[in-house]
Structure formats: C-alpha cells, structure tokens
Amino acid sequence: MSRPVIGIIGNQYVIDNRFPVQAAGGMNCAAIAGPAQCMPLVIPSDPDYVSIPELLEHCDGFLFTGGRPNVHPGQYGEEPTEAHGAFDEARDAIAIPLIRACVERGQPFFGICRGFQEVNVAMGGTLYPEIRDLPGRDNHRMPPDGTLEEQFALRHKVHFADGGVFHRLMGAQEVMTNTLHGQGIKAAGPDIVIDGLASDGTPEAIYVRDAPGFTLSVQWHPEWNAARDPVSRVLFNAFGDAARAWAARGAGMARRSA
C-alpha cells in the first residue's frame, strides 16, 4: 500500500552566494518518513512554480516548516520594520492561501515555528516582531553558538489547557520543548484556539476551532529528534494518521466515481 504524500513547504536559499535553491530540512523529511510513516515531497514555495489547486490534488497533507524569513507584516495589516527581519513573500503567497484552503476542505496540515505563525496569520491573527523585547517574556531564539544538540535542546515547559486537544493527545498537561523563534502570536485569529503556553505566556500550541481536519500547530521544532522524543513522536504519529484517513477517503471517493 502506497504511503500518503505530505507536501513539505520549503524555503528559498542561495548557496555560495550564487545558486538559488528551494529546499527543506532533512529533519522534516525524516520526521515525515519516520514517525508519520508518510512520503515526504518537498514543495518549492513560489507561485511561479506551483498552484494551490495542484498542491491540494497531489498531496494528502502539508507540513508548514520553520524558516529564517518571517511572514511579511503586510499579510496582517502592518508596516514592515527592521525588527520584522527578512521576508519570503513568495512563500507567503503559497502558504497563507493553502492553509485557508486546507481548513475549508478538511485536508490535514501541521504547522511548525514559521508555519505555526502562518496558520495564525491565515486565520486573521497578528504577530509580534520580537518576543524577547516584550516585558516579562523570555528569549525564545536559538542559542547562537553550540552544536545542533545544544541548540535544539529542550529549554522550557509548555503547559496545555486542561482537557484540551493537546492534553488529550499527549496524555500530559505539561511537556518540555526546544525553542528557536523570534516572532510569536500577538493577537490570535478569531478561530484560533491557543491550547498551550510557555511559562512566560507565549503561545506555543494552537489549532483551528471547528475545523473538519487536523490543524495542530506548534511554535517549537518537533522535527528535531522526532523518532525518539516522546512529544515529537506523538505529534507526527497523529499527523500521519490524519493523512492516512484523508488518503483513504480520497481513494474511496475515486472508487465510487469509477
């Protein structure tokens, strides 16, 4: 039996200051192929290359990954400043409408870091340009030095709403996560449920209220050590199950229309 196909929304890079590429992290591919038990397909996130209808047709779900460029504040009605950092408006042009289409169709997606922020923006929310500048907030950015193991190490707790979606999924109300982000949710979209918070009040886990499909998204990076970390593994297992359910539904519809 073929595996469900997960479109991994990539990012633009330039190698050696010369060669433009579209790429996604190997950790994301490993998490999809491993704990999710799906087939990873890296998507060039640029409307010059792909369209929303094509992506919806060919993929059973989507992973909205992290990335250094931030969502352009014009997407939520604000002017860009130096604090907002670099942007990737081509990715915005794919990710934002794709999230909305998935919510409407019930097609599963999983948002991580920038992807978490894209989900909030797609649903009408806004973002802070820099969490660490806010009174009472911690520095959630990646440590600038050290090995990958040190940079992706578990650094703070996330507390889930009692009896909420994440609490039920994890079987625990509090988990340890890594943290590698600068921006964060300012105002949640009208249909965004904030289901998990860091100890400083930063939103860390969300989903879309009353959406017919899987919409869980997290501010941390569960793709790191996904096969062995119990929190990450549960998230990718659940996402893979949602993709398999979607794929089976599509196969059933195809058989009925044949």
Rank of each mutant, 00 (worst) to 15 (best):
R3K: 15
A198N: 07
A86H: 04
G74W: 06
D48A: 12
R100M: 05
I192E: 01
P203V: 00
A95V: 05
C113Y: 10
F87A: 09
P44Q: 09
D200E: 03
A83T: 02
A242E: 00
G115W: 03
N70A: 10
Q75G: 01
K157G: 07
P108L: 06
D145H: 15
R233S: 00
R168M: 02
L180Q: 10
I99M: 09
G136S: 08
G171I: 06
T202A: 03
F166M: 07
A188I: 11
A226S: 14
F62D: 04
G125Y: 05
C113P: 01
E130G: 10
V165F: 14
R132F: 12
I6D: 05
F87R: 05
I9M: 06
E89M: 14
D138F: 05
P143S: 06
Q37T: 04
A258N: 07
V231T: 15
G124K: 04
P230V: 01
F166N: 02
P143Q: 09
P135E: 12
V14T: 12
W220S: 02
Y76R: 03
A31T: 01
N139L: 07
Y49V: 09
R249L: 07
G115T: 04
D46M: 07
Y13I: 11
F64I: 02
A93D: 13
D88L: 09
G196V: 03
D200R: 14
D241E: 14
A247R: 14
P4D: 10
V71P: 09
G250M: 12
F152H: 15
A23V: 11
Q183S: 04
F160W: 10
G164R: 11
G146T: 13
F62G: 05
A86D: 13
W224Q: 02
V158D: 02
V5M: 15
P203Q: 00
I43Q: 01
A122I: 02
T202Y: 00
G171V: 06
Y49P: 00
I131N: 05
K157D: 15
A101Q: 14
H58K: 09
R209E: 06
G163S: 06
L197A: 02
P143W: 10
V165R: 15
E149T: 15
H159K: 15
A93S: 14
S232Q: 07
Y49Q: 09
P40E: 12
A33D: 11
D16F: 04
S199Y: 11
L127N: 02
R168G: 03
A153P: 03
D48R: 14
G74Y: 08
Q173A: 11
A83R: 15
W246A: 04
G146W: 04
R228V: 12
V50H: 14
M253V: 00
A31W: 02
L56A: 01
H58F: 06
